[in-house]
Design a protein around this nucleic acid. Structure first.
Lengths: 147, 147
DNA sequence: TTGTCTGCAAAATATTTGCATATCA
DNA sequence: TGATATGCAAATATTTTGCAGACAA
């Protein structure tokens, strides 16, 4: 999907979500959403603030954090924690579920999907009578160029 | 293994580690190690500080954090992050590798082991020419009593 | 018009660090 | 004795919050 189409879909989705909560689509929220979609890959709150400020220098850190919470709630973004003490975000809308390799030398992140692992997780959960809502699988190590 | 035997093994392991690094086994480090082994389950730095202070009220936060780093390095403890913004620790010495279910209602943590999942992870890593050093698999959802 | 938002600065949370003094080996 | 460790307080880093004025519906 092209960026423009993606952004359009995201805006539609976000404004729909905001409406259901009686919240408003402000110019700041529009800008932040736009930059989050354009950012691609994984980005931190801080990076999103920088990107957003380039479009509108008056946007504040507080608004970015508050908007990130809404984008997460509306399932447009997903929050990840790669263990460096801060949260990062990635687009969830139109992006299939996947897990991550994280290179502990260069920081590169590689995505992968494996249905078999998912199935085994469900089997294991059933054994413990546990109902899985979401999961996080991270493989830390060395990527090809670092090993 | 009984607590006393476990503690003895941990002390032996820790003092061996400290020696190789030309570091000292101080009374504070001994106290903190003792409380970490007695704590069982998962505990935060803050909780370990509280426990340690009961044995020696002069122990400081800084020393607990510094000692936790050493206990992690020496493989006596393992660091976990269950996504609530702080790190928790669990004993690794004499404790087989396992993954976790985390109940998002009551916070209960259930451990599980699954060799098949581990194997599939390795297979998947090999496909990407990625060398896995350690991994983290967390299944979030509802435990039996919360669902 | 009115309830929601915003920017700002201050607060909260978890962890780390500089430094003078104390302690282990 | 000398290198390492400690406690304290201040510094970091990230995220959250209170508040008074601004804005969307």
């Amino acid at each position: 999907m092209k960026d423009a189409a993606l952004l359009k879909e995201a805006e539609k989705s976000f404004s729909g979500f905001l409406e259901t909560q009686s919240l408003k689509l402000t110019s700041q929220r529009r800008t932040i959403l736009g930059q989050a979609i354009e950012a691609r890959g994984h980005f931190s709150a801080d990076r999103l603030l920088d990107l957003s400020k380039k479009k509108d220098p008056t946007i504040s850190k507080a608004t970015v954090y508050r908007t990130l919470a809404l984008l997460k709630e509306s399932k447009i973004l997903e929050e990840q924690d790669f263990g460096d003490g801060r949260k990062v975000y990635e687009r969830a809308l139109g992006h299939r579920h996947h897990d991550h390799f994280i290179c502990i030398r260069c920081g590169k992140i590689i995505e992968f999907e494996n249905d078999e692992i998912e199935k085994l997780q469900d089997t294991e959960a059933a054994k413990c009578r546990f109902k899985v809502v979401y999961h996080s699988l991270k493989l830390f190590g060395f990527c090809q160029s670092c090993s």
